[in-house]
Each structure stands twice: as structure tokens, then as C-alpha cells.
Amino acid sequence: MPSTLPDRAIEADGLVKVFGTNRAVDGVDLRVDTGTVYGVLGPNGAGKTTTISMLATLLRPDGGNARIFGHDVVGEPHTVRQLIGVTGQYASVDEKVSGIENMIVFGRLLGLSHRAAKLKGRELLEAFGLAEAAKRPVGKYSGGMRRRLDLASSLIAHPPLIFLDEPTTGLDPRTRGQMWDVIRGLVAGGSTVLLTTQYLDEADQLADRIAVIDRGRVVAEGTADELKSSVGTAALQLRLADTAQTAVALTVIEQVLGVSATATPEAARITAPMGDPDRVTDLLLALRERGIPLAEVSVTKPTLDEVFLTITGHATDDAASAEHETEEVAA
């Protein structure tokens, strides 16, 4: 079993997919180590789904090649399919029949007997909180339930590699949190997960390594920390005990750190770029000398949103971020 697992779950070299005149994927290289979560991050239409489809043998690449645990996706598609589970952006389950019937059909297709498929199906439905809805037609499920059923269907054979295409897009924050727990659980069990997302915090939370993909190309790759530090320095955040002293504090920062800080008026929070951590001591002493008491001091690293903006030269898709915000409001 795990002893036979190759070190590399995914190796892709120069993958290309062209739709008409649109180079949806334009030379993507990926290296995903076994047992890790790999995040593919990018806005709508960046080529994430197309990349996954090629890796999962659903689409034939127009150029380049890819291997899953050493097996070529074009040359040995049947072998590759025995090693992967795919959960798409849109639930790939049968709407007309019930949850358990879906599981039985998929289980049978994966080589289980009717009885074993039913048992496995029940177990997974239970694990995903769908036991009560097991006998209802999937057409009557909510979006979150469908997504969970979809993921449950991908886990019947316990595949060593799982593709999750935007697993939380359109889910409410609570269900998203549950989905994250499931993904962490999968990795704890030894699975390798390749996950696409347009949510930067999601990649940050889950992925060991991240590829930022934009217009069909990988524009940056590394751990979340590497990506963030590639963008720049951390920021020092100060909250004053007395907001009336904000203007004085800004002057002090300017003098000591040699940079201009910004302040949010309502919370009296001051943010200053922090180049040399050593100078912070000087700043804090200077503030004490001037009699400016602090309520809070913290250091924040740049968010992946800032990373994305810096790397691609444009912000993440407007529609996507708007959707994100609405969901948070709905919570």
C-alpha cells in the first residue's frame, strides 16, 4: 500500500488546451508531492477547471503531458482513473434518483458488490451528514447537500489522489468550514489533494503549496508564506488608547521608521510598513517618551489578496469577490 506510493502524485509539463482561438491553458507545469494539499488559485476563467479536467482524463491536452503517480493521462487513462477521485464545481450526481442509489451505482461501477456498495454508501452518507436524506431524490437536496454527496461519491474507493474543483464556491460559511475539515481529514488519512479555488483565504488555510494561475499560465508558485514574502514586508498595526493623539503618533512613526503610515479614523488603527523589525523597539520607546499610550500592537503579514494583486497586476475577479462578500453577509 503506502510503501508503493511514488513521491510525486502529479507531474505536469507544459499542458496546453485551446478552445477555438482561446488558449484556456497555456503551458502549465505542476509538481505535486504525495500526501500534500496543493492549491491552484486564480480568478474565474483562469484555466483552473480546464487544467483539472486534463489531469483527470476528462479532456485531452492539446500540448504537453502529465503523469499521475507516474502514469500518463493520455497513454494510460484507465490506470489513472483507478487512482483519482474528482469532485467538480457542479455536483456530478444523478438528480433523479436518491442519495443512496447514487452511491450504490457508483460503488458497483468501482467494482464493489451490491451489498458492499450499499454498506459503503450508507457509511459515507452518515459521515457527511446525509443519512436522513439518503432515500430522497437528489433533485430535492440543497446546494450544500449535493456538494457533500458529490464529495462522498468521490471517496467510495478511497483514491490516493483527489481533485476538488472549487469545492466551496457558493457554499455558506458554515458548510465551507465543514468542507475544510473534510479536506484536512482526507490528508490526515494519507490522500493527496489538488484543490482549485478563487478564495485566497481558502488556499492560505488548506494548501501546503500554491500555484497562482492567471490567463492559462502559472504566474507564481510556492508556499503561502513564500508567496507572501515575495510580495513584501509585514505591516505593523497600532491601536492608540486615545484617538486624539493619532496625528502626533503618525509624525513619530514618520520620524523613527522613516515611512509614512496610514490611519483608519474610526478605530484609530495605524498601519505602517515594517522593513526592519529592530526599529520597532525604537518606535515603541519614542511613543512612550511622547506620552502616547498604546491599546494594542500587532504585526500582520500581507494577505494573499495583496499577493494576487501584485503578481497579476490586477485584482481578483470582481464578480468572485462580490459573491464572497455576499455570502459572508448572509452568515
Binding site: 508503493t4 506510493l5 452518515e126 471517496l155 478511497h158 483514491p159 481529514g185 488519512g189 494519507g190 490522500s191
Partner: peptide, 9 residues
């Protein structure tokens, strides 16, 4: 339940 069931190669 998922954590207790490791991936199967």
C-alpha cells in the same frame, strides 16, 4: 469517519 479510513493505493 474519513480520518480513520486511509487512502488506498
Amino acid at each position: 469517519i474519513i480520518e480513520t479510513q486511509p487512502a488506498v493505493f
